[in-house]
Design a protein around this nucleic acid. Structure first.
Length: 577
DNA sequence: GCCGTTTTCGGCCCGACTGTTTTCAGTCG
């Protein structure tokens, strides 16, 4: 039972309550759900320790904690079942239709008995929906339009898919003569591993012209809505939201729409303490204002740039990746923000495959590709055979010894340093799939879990960390975004052992993985464990994924000094020696 | 239902857009 599962259940609870016009509770359930989903430990495990342990999670109180424990123990929540019986609808599916929320679902069930997407489609096609009070022909047509999109997976998009789309629309907007500035905003600017949509912000004196050009964007498949200051389109299965603001409010809008929500709440409270009001239009001095509730009351003291916004509340600018309300505002106030690493700091890739295992290119081709990419060194780490290596892609000990002379020969010719390595498998008992004397002949050993990727993996990984020949743990949890959650790991314990044994923990930059995640990276760094950012490239075109790893590291507050492969090849060699 | 260097009771972010409305409700971010 994953945290995500529990969170989804609480969100259904919230929707059902909201459909019945219950006030405030829905928000309480949603905030609890969000914090449970993001909780670093397994909430199922917490629940075994009782309600108090669950209630220790922020925004989770006694009532919700007892429901979570009930769910973990019995597999069901009585009160939720009662709500479902009163409103027996496929809430998740129905609310994924654009413009349909819990209240609409409630009304359509009461009036027309609609329970499923199929019911909804049939009612819309029959013209029944526009007969319901409060609904009209237009609403009915919009619902019909949105059903197909809702049926297609309404999963969140991978950052690796959303970023290229976002950058394309951003650059398209920047090229418009009416646009002064354009930036991505929202979770994509914070580089969250998955995003619900692409948010883009533009500064212009002529909002209507920008909206018109945006809806004409050649890559847009469909226009969802278009107003005077904002518009939404679908492009390649992703929803892209545009907002246009006046140039003098670009900084405040960018700050506001970048979020996170919790970061902005903390920031806004800090503003209130200083008799300031902070919103998407700027920072306003309301110390002399009788009614500060109106949205632009008081003298405007900031808003053109983000730097100005933070400066107005006595803070330095905070990088978007840190804006998750995990202590960044306190750190900023005390001058303790980390000097985050950048893509330019990374000078090598220590996890690369070739056609000796499941890569698509030769050793030489991968080395040349890395050279063109600008790396100073790489480690060739083909798969060793072992659990999870199906179809004979993995190298056995004899294969590894056979590959080694080839590898050394390419290395001798190369313009960059080439380390001879292997990606060994970590079995469920923590053993490593390659003989110790073979590993000892290699320069770099990354050990990774590839099978049995559920349950608690801490002991398993700790055993691998302690192995004398293992230099790094690859994709530690084994998660694949939108597919599987991977191992649960006590990252505190793993990291402290890793620190003691000088074993690096990998941020695997493959967009489907991004493993470790930012929050775990921060814990690992705090414990003193070295981090290594690798692409796990199976072809030369994948070297560019390194930026997703870099920004994941930034989400974990990483400085260049925390990351192994910011060091030059000589320093790497001595780390390995 | 949750939470508190304003608080254990009385508040909960708020503005834009849409569609349906005679002044607003629902959705969304």
């Amino acid at each position: 039972m994953t945290n995500d599962e529990i969170a989804t259940l609480l969100e259904e609870f919230a929707d059902l309550l909201e459909a019945q016009d219950v006030e405030y509770k829905p928000r309480a359930y949603r905030r609890a759900a969000e914090n449970i989903r993001d909780h670093p430990e397994s909430v199922e495990t917490l629940a075994a320790d009782g309600e108090d342990a669950v209630a220790s999670i922020d925004r989770v109180g006694d009532a919700i904690a007892s429901k979570v424990v009930e769910y973990v123990e019995t597999g069901t929540i009585e009160e939720l079942d009662e709500l479902r019986a009163e409103l027996p609808v496929e809430m998740d599916a129905l609310t994924s239709v654009d413009g349909v929320g819990p209240k609409t679902v409630g009304t359509l069930y009461e009036e027309l008995g609609i329970e499923t997407l199929d019911d909804l489609e049939a009612a819309a096609e029959a013209g029944d929906i526009q007969e319901v009070s409060g609904f009209g022909a237009k609403t009915e047509a919009n619902i019909l339009d949105g059903i197909d999109f809702a049926r297609q997976a309404h999963e969140r998009s991978l950052l690796g898919a959303a970023i290229p789309q976002g950058e394309a629309v951003r650059d398209y907007l920047r090229d418009l003569p009416t646009v002064e500035r354009a930036e991505l905003a929202g979770s994509i600017r914070r580089w969250r591993p998955t995003v619900g949509d692409v948010d883009v912000l533009a500064a212009s004196e002529d909002a209507q012209a920008v909206v018109d050009s945006f809806t004409d964007w050649p890559e847009a498949d469909d226009v969802i809505e278009a107003g005077t200051g904002k518009a939404s389109v679908r492009a390649g299965g992703v929803r892209v939201d545009l907002r246009v603001v006046a140039p003098e409010a670009f900084g405040s809008a960018l700050q506001y729409f970048t979020g996170s929500w919790d970061h902005n709440v903390t920031l806004r409270n800090r503003a209130i303490e200083r008799e300031l009001k902070m919103n998407e239009y700027g920072v306003f001095d309301v110390s002399d204002v009788e009614n500060p509730d109106s949205k632009r009351a008081g003298e405007r003291v900031a808003g053109v740039t983000e730097e100005e916004m933070y400066d107005a509340v006595g803070l330095p600018w905070i990088p978007p990746e840190l804006r998750e309300d995990r202590g960044e505002i306190v750190a900023a106030a005390e001058g303790d923000l980390p000097e985050l690493l950048t893509a330019a700091d990374v000078c090598g890739d220590l996890h690369v495959h070739t056609d000796w295992s499941d890569g698509t290119e030769s050793i030489r081709s991968m080395v040349e590709g890395a050279t063109r990419f600008g790396h100073d060194y790489i480690a060739i780490t083909d798969h060793a055979t072992g659990p999870g290596m199906v179809g004979g892609v993995g190298l056995d000990d004899a294969d590894i010894r056979e590959q080694l002379p080839d590898l050394r020969a390419v290395a001798d010719d190369a313009d960059i340093t080439v380390f001879a390595g292997i990606e060994a498998n970590i079995a469920t008992d923590g053993s490593v799939s390659v003989a110790g004397d073979v590993l000892a002949e290699l320069d770099f050993v990354v050990a990774s879990p590839h099978a049995g990727l559920d349950g608690d993996g801490t002991d398993r990984l700790v055993a691998a960390v302690k192995h004398p020949e293992v230099d790094a743990i690859g994709h530690p949890t084994g998660r694949r975004l939108n597919e599987r959650n991977g191992l649960e790991i006590d990252i505190d314990r793993l990291a402290s052992v890793a620190a003691a044994h000088d074993t690096a923990l990998e941020i695997n930059a493959t967009p489907q993985r991004l493993d470790l995640a930012g929050r775990a990276v921060k814990t690992a760094i705090d414990a003193g464990a070295p981090i290594v950012i690798n692409t796990d490239a199976h072809r030369t075109s994948s070297y560019e994924f390194v930026r997703y790893g870099v920004h994941t590291a930034r989400r974990g507050w990483a400085t260049p000094g925390d990351v192994l492969n910011t060091r030059d090849s000589g320093e790497i060699a001595s780390f390995l020696g």
